[in-house]
């Protein structure tokens, strides 16, 4: 069993409207030293069996579905492997 954490974020060139709103709300709460807030997605995947292609597979999952390369960046970490 392996566990994979995938993080998907909007590319820096894009305006992150949600991040801006959250930033405004945090500033309203008095946190006045905030430079910026950007929001993204966190996806947890559990994978059965290890056939040695996990990293390739996860990369393909990200490219094909989990992230849209036109607008998003992704990164992932395999946190639990081969137990």
């Amino acid at each position: 069993m392996a566990k994979v954490n995938v993080y998907v974020t909007l590319k820096p060139a894009l305006l992150d409207a949600q991040g801006k709103v959250v930033q405004g709300a945090l500033e309203n709460l008095g946190f006045d030293s905030i430079e910026s807030v950007r929001m993204g997605k966190f996806i947890e995947i559990e994978v059965n069996g290890g056939n040695g292609t996990l990293e390739q597979d996860v990369d393909e999952m990200c490219r094909k579905l989990l992230a849209n390369p036109n607008i998003e960046n992704y990164r992932y970490e395999i946190v639990k492997d081969g137990e």
């Binding site: 894009l14 409207a17 949600q18 709103v21 849209n68």
Partner: peptide, 17 residues
């Protein structure tokens, strides 16, 4: 169609949310 790469670009949230 944009997601399927049948058209270029992408559609993201309205800037006013």
């Amino acid at each position: 169609l944009c997601e399927a790469h049948l058209l270029p670009g992408a559609l993201i949230d309205n800037n006013g949310l």
